[in-house]
C-alpha cells in the first residue's frame, strides 16, 4: 500500500531466558493507513508487545528485529532517544487500558492534557489552555473548565479515558495506538469511547491501531482485522467478513462471547492456548 502511514515487515520480538531467547512475536507484517486496523488475540498472543514495539517502548532486554519498520518514511529502528521524543506525543500517540494508572494522580488534568503542546509546540500558556479546553470539549466532557482544574481522582473511569484521548489527540498525531482502551470500562461506556475514537479518527484523518481481545466488539468499529495467536498472525480480513472467518481460531474467538443464544451450551475454549498451568 503506497499511502500507508506505518509499515512493519518481519517483526520479531524475543526475550532472553535460561534456555536461550524465546520469541514472543514471530515475523509479523502489517500496514496502517488512514484507517482503523484492529489487532485481536487472547492474552499472551503478542498483540500488546507489537503495539509497544512500534512506539519503541519495550524494555531494553527485549530483542526487536524487523526487516522494515517505517512511520511516515522514518526508519523507526534507527531512532535514538531524541528522535523518539520528537515522535511520541506528536507524530504518534499511545492510549492505554486504565486511566487510573496512566494519568499522573499528582497533577491536574489540564497540565497533563497540555503536556504534548508544551513539549512539541511554541504556543503560549493561554493558547495551550484554550487548545486543551477545546480538546476536552471535543471528547465529550461536560464542563471542560472544571475537568481542566480537577485531579484525576475526581474523574470517573469513562471521564478519565476521555481525558487520556484528549491528551493524545491534542497535537493531532498521524497514528494512534490504542491498547485495550476500553477494557477497564463498563460495556455502555466502552461503546461510547470506541464511537468517539472512530469519529475522531475520521475527522482528523488519522490511522488507528486498535488492540483488543474482544473480536465482536472491535469488528463494529474497525475497517480491517488482524488476528494474532501465540505471536503469529493467523488471519487478516475486512471487519465486515468476520462472521465468515476461515480459521478455526478466529471462529472460536468470535463464538467465545456469551449471548442469549448460547444459554445452556458450553462456550468454545482453546485447550492448547500455551498458558502456564
Amino acid at each position: 500500500m503506497t499511502d500507508a502511514l506505518l509499515t512493519v515487515e518481519d517483526l520479531t520480538i524475543s526475550f532472553p531466558s535460561d534456555n536461550g531467547p524465546v520469541p514472543v512475536v514471530k515475523s509479523i507484517s502489517l500496514t496502517v493507513a488512514r484507517e482503523i486496523v484492529a489487532v485481536v488475540g487472547e492474552s499472551g498472543s503478542g498483540k500488546s508487545l507489537t503495539g509497544r514495539a512500534i512506539m519503541g517502548l519495550l524494555p531494553c532486554r527485549a530483542h526487536v528485529r524487523a526487516s522494515r519498520m517505517l512511520f511516515e518514511g522514518i526508519d523507526l529502528q534507527t531512532l535514538g532517544p531524541a528522535g523518539w521524543n520528537g515522535l511520541r506525543g506528536s507524530g504518534m500517540g499511545l492510549i492505554l487500558q486504565d486511566p487510573k494508572f496512566s494519568l499522573n494522580p499528582a497533577h491536574r488534568v489540564g497540565r497533563q492534557v497540555e503536556e504534548a503542546l508544551l513539549l512539541h509546540t511554541k504556543l503560549s500558556a493561554r493558547e495551550r489552555k484554550q487548545r486543551a479546553l477545546d480538546m476536552l470539549a471535543r471528547v465529550g466532557l461536560p464542563d471542560p473548565e472544571r475537568v481542566y482544574a480537577s485531579y484525576p481522582a475526581a474523574l470517573s473511569g469513562g471521564m478519565g479515558q476521555r481525558v487520556m484521548i484528549a491528551a493524545m489527540l491534542i497535537n493531532r498525531p498521524m497514528l494512534i495506538i490504542a491498547d485495550e482502551p476500553t477494557s477497564a470500562l463498563d460495556r455502555g461506556l466502552q461503546d461510547q469511547v470506541l464511537t468517539l475514537l472512530r469519529s475522531l479518527t475520521e475527522e482528523f484523518g488519522m490511522g488507528l491501531l486498535l488492540i483488543s481481545h474482544d473480536l465482536q466488539q472491535v469488528s463494529r468499529y474497525a475497517d480491517r482485522v488482524i488476528v494474532m495467536r501465540q505471536g503469529e498472525i493467523v488471519e487478516r480480513l475486512p471487519a465486515s467478513e468476520l462472521a465468515q472467518a476461515q480459521t478455526a481460531y478466529t471462529r472460536g474467538l468470535w463464538a467465545a462471547r456469551p449471548s442469549f443464544a448460547t444459554y445452556g451450551t458450553r462456550l468454545p475454549v482453546f485447550e492448547d492456548s500455551g498458558r502456564p498451568s
Binding site: E42, H213, L215, A256, P258, V269
Partner: peptide, 14 residues
Amino acid sequence: LDVTVQAEILNLLN
C-alpha cells in the same frame, strides 16, 4: 477477564 478466559470461567461455573 479476556473474552476467551471468560468463556472458560463461565463453563467452569456452570
